[in-house]
Amino acid sequence: MGALLADVAAWFGDSANWTGAAGVPNRVLEHLQYSIVPILLALLIAVPIGAAVGHSGRGGFLVVGVANGMRSLPELGVLTILVTFMSVGLLPVTIALLILAIPPLLAGTYAGVSNVDRAVVDAARGMGMTEPEILTKVELPNALPLIIGGLRTATLQVIATAAIAAFVGVDGLGRILFSGLAVRDYTRMAAGALLIAVLALLADAALAALQRLIVSPGLRTSTSSRRRAVVAPAQPEQLPQSRSTTPEPELARS
C-alpha cells in the first residue's frame, strides 16, 4: 500500500499530467461541465413539479412510485442504452444524467413541501395569504432542508455517473480512470478514482455550506435545542406539536 501511495503521489507530481487536453485541470472542467447542465435542468423540472404535487397533495403516490422505480435502474445500463440508440456524444450523457438527477430532487421537494406542518399552512391561509404566497413564503422555505438534501444526492449521483460516462466514449475524470484500465496502469486508475472522490466530496461540502447559508436557523433543530438549553433553562411546558422526524430524502447512489 505504501508503494502504491508513493506511485500515486508521483503521478500527481508529474507535470505532464497537469497540462493539455488530458491534464487534470481540463478533465475536471469537462467533468463539471457534464455535471452542471443536467443538475440545473433537473432543478428546473423537478422542483416546480414536486412543489405543485406537495402543495396540492394530489399525485404523491406517483412521485414516490417513480422515484422508487428509478432507484432500481442500473445507471450503467441506462447510459449504455441511450448511447446505443443516440450515438456517442454529450446529448445522451446529459439525458442519462438528467434522468438520474430528477428523482431525488423530485422526492425531496415533494416530501419537503408535503411535510410542512398542516397547522402552519392553515395559519398562513387563515391570515390571508394567497396560495402562491403560501407556497413561496411558507412551504418552500420550510422545505429547503429536504430540497437541498435532494440536490446533494442528485449532485453526488451525477458526478459519480459522469465518471462512468467515459466508458461510452466521452471524457471527464472518468477518462483518466478508463485509460488506466485499458493499459492495466493501476496507479493512473487510483489517481483518477481519487480525483473523482475529491470532486464529489468538495461538491457535497459546497452544497452543505449553501444549506447552512440559506436555510432559516429556525429550522435547524440541533442549533435551536442547543440555544434553547442555554437561553431558556426552565421550560415547564411541552411544545404542543411533536416535530415530525424529517423523512430521508431519496437515497440513491452510483
Binding site: M1, L156, I159, A160, G192, A193, A200, L201, D204, L251
Partner: peptide
C-alpha cells in the same frame, strides 16, 4: 454520510490498494 458520498466505481478501484 461521508462514506456514502464516495462513488462506487472509485471504491471498487481504490479498495485493492487498501
Amino acid at each position: 454520510g461521508l462514506l456514502y458520498t464516495i462513488p462506487s466505481l472509485v471504491l471498487f478501484i481504490l479498495l485493492p490498494g487498501i
